[in-house]
Design a protein around this nucleic acid. Structure first.
Lengths: 226, 226, 226, 226
DNA sequence: CATGAATGAGGCTTCATTCAT
DNA sequence: GATGAATGAAGCCTCATTCAT
């Protein structure tokens, strides 16, 4: 019991620091973030931050892990809520969930994309890779690797179900359809940020309208007989 | 004449440095890049790099400018080549051009996205720092601002033409259609990098096939009567 | 009684910590040693270590004290065992004892030398820090000062006896003879470590042979009529 | 020419920094030495120190290298000066040279001993070694390894010559005789420092007298027919 | 007494930028 | 114009020590 309490306490303190890290990272960016600032924001000392996360990068990975966990959770809920719906509806719901997740937790969505880019660059043979050894040794990095595939699996699974139950007419492979859907969402997110630069030329478009339209596009893709 | 020669010489040397910068930035990311490395790669001294570009950020902006210039050029060519085609075909050709540009010059596409995100207060990937005053004062930053709107103008223009000439049936506003198309491309780019992480789950999909399918989707969007 | 028990318990726990400290200090050197490591090695918490030894330096002094105590004890036994022998034999026996002590407890011999060098303003090996006020206030430091002179007294005493009983012919002052003997031993110890570097050039020499030869040299020094 | 000048200049600046490092290291010890202090002492900035020596440990190795170089030089001169003397005299001269070197450059003698101890501890299989990777990668560390054997070679060589020319009667192997001689010197040096602690008991002995007596002992060792 | 989380001063090192030659 | 040595602010991280539980 007391063991459990201690563990809970630790988790709580860690969470407190991750909260702070999120705020600072998201406000000023990774490289502009000083560990000291995170400590201040968390109301603890620099040493305490290092007691829980032995590296700045490790702390960043912890943030990433949390982000991915939350995304997975959202997708899971959506998935569960549409067990009895047709596959098509479930897929579109997943897309909306993702879209909303990105809107609500914009920083998280960036962090996740960041991670995936990072992960990719390791797989190239470059010795001058973006990923440092510190990252690879991070506990959180390994934890992330265990859960990073869930979104893909969930979504492609529902697409397959939709194909089987006849709600999805499109005969392309689920992986391809998945990439289209996910890509549309990712593009939306990135553009949403970028669009700031083009307010002058694009000020007619309302974000909500845009989002809804994308769902329409996705739906008609799944329903087209290509 | 000798003045012109001098100017050409200067342009050449600058180009040489930008070449080197590109390589290093793309290999290890902005913050891991040292001016020294760029100088070495360019075969000049650090002092020379600073003679032509007074800041690391300014040099990065120069790379960005070149990227945008090349993209604009590609789009221009496509645009010109389809003057006499229907608007629909021109728009799709522009999308293909953009898609191919991103595939061929992946680093450029990242840099351009980076730039567009630059104005936002949120962080733009772990790797880039936030915009500083130094950036805003950069000559290249201003040069970019002069040409940044070209892609939007070109594409929305062609969409409008397609609507007028009847080749585009969709009645949504051109800006919205533009955002869909552009978003699809951006999503493709980002995912293309990220997808590396999921080779295990997504190994069935071939990039070329994916690209072609996206064009199909865009075409049917423009042809749908929503 | 219970008081005595408590005291014994305390002594036991202290000894346990000193054991651990010895291991770690000897393995990685003073400055590379972390209190945490000592605690772990002793199977207690860092707080406990600090309960018994309020400073890292104090703990080091405790190790030194133990080392000196053990050396004194060895020398005492040798001294006692040769009460009825000639002074010459007793002196040589003391030298052998010291030599064997250094061979057997190499770390102790280093620590003792370290301590003796401590008062000098010069640096004592890359690894040890200079004497701070904390050391001087250390209880162990004072305890050491009470017993540090025993080796000198014992050995010079036996030399004097040897001179008196005629077994030692050499007419130099006992202090000088002592310094020669002690210096030979110290040199042996330091070289024994260092010699590792020269295994290639010195691989013919066997440590035991070397030791025995040194005793021969000392004997003939004491027997020479200089 | 100008190339040579540049190289000379560099050597000069390095020497200046090593000078400063020596002073500070010797005054307060390795771990109490701050790079900043060395910089100040050298009259340059911290960055400059790092420009020439990329690590504190590397700088320490540079000091060690210089110390060994100077010792080697002294021994060489002595060796050359006694080319036509008997081997015995040459050996004793080498011992005196070493003795004087240690007296004159006490810090150097400590540094050299330090290095040899360091070098030994690497050869043990411990993963918790005293030597860090930084040291092993140091250019100076490798340079030292090239010259560290000179003293042994020189002295054992002269002993052999002495045996051949009949001036050395002792029939023990040169390596053993070398160890005795060198050990006596090392012991002298260490005790000379340590003796400070025992001024009360040993104040009768004068250093010069001690030194001379040691030479006598060594001479009679080499002349004894063991 | 024991624990181990918390502290924060301190030091090494990096690197964009400057500047004398 | 080019060079590369010099600068020094800035930041990550370590670890002896303290202290609440």
């Amino acid at each position: 019991m007391s063991n459990t309490n201690a563990s809970q306490k630790r988790t709580l303190k860690e969470a407190n620091i991750i909260d702070a890290a999120e705020k600072v990272f998201s406000a000023v960016g990774y490289s502009n973030t000083k560990m000291e600032d995170i400590a201040k924001e968390a109301g603890v000392s620099k040493g305490t931050v290092y007691f829980y996360f032995d590296t700045k990068e490790n702390l960043y990975m912890a943030v990433t892990y949390r982000a991915l966990l939350l995304l997975n959770d959202s997708l899971y809920r959506s998935h569960a809520a549409h067990k009895s719906s047709f596959g098509l509806e479930s897929v579109l719901a997943l897309a909306e969930t993702y879209l909303d997740f990105c809107a609500k937790y914009f920083f998280y969505s960036e962090v996740i994309l960041d991670y995936m880019t990072l992960n990719r660059s390791t797989q190239l043979g470059k010795d001058r890779a973006r990923m440092t050894d510190a990252i690879k040794e991070s506990m959180y990095y390994r934890m992330i690797q265990d859960i990073q595939n869930l979104p893909v699996k969930l979504i492609t699974g529902e697409i397959s179900r939709g194909v089987e139950d006849g709600s999805i007419v499109n005969r392309q492979r689920p992986e391809l359809l998945y990439l289209v859907a996910w890509g549309v969402v990712v593009g939306f997110v990135k553009l949403n940020v970028a669009a700031g630069s083009f307010r002058s030329t694009l000020h007619h478009v309302n974000t909500q309208e845009w989002r809804d339209y994308l769902i329409t596009v996705l739906r008609s893709d799944l329903l087209s007989n290509r």
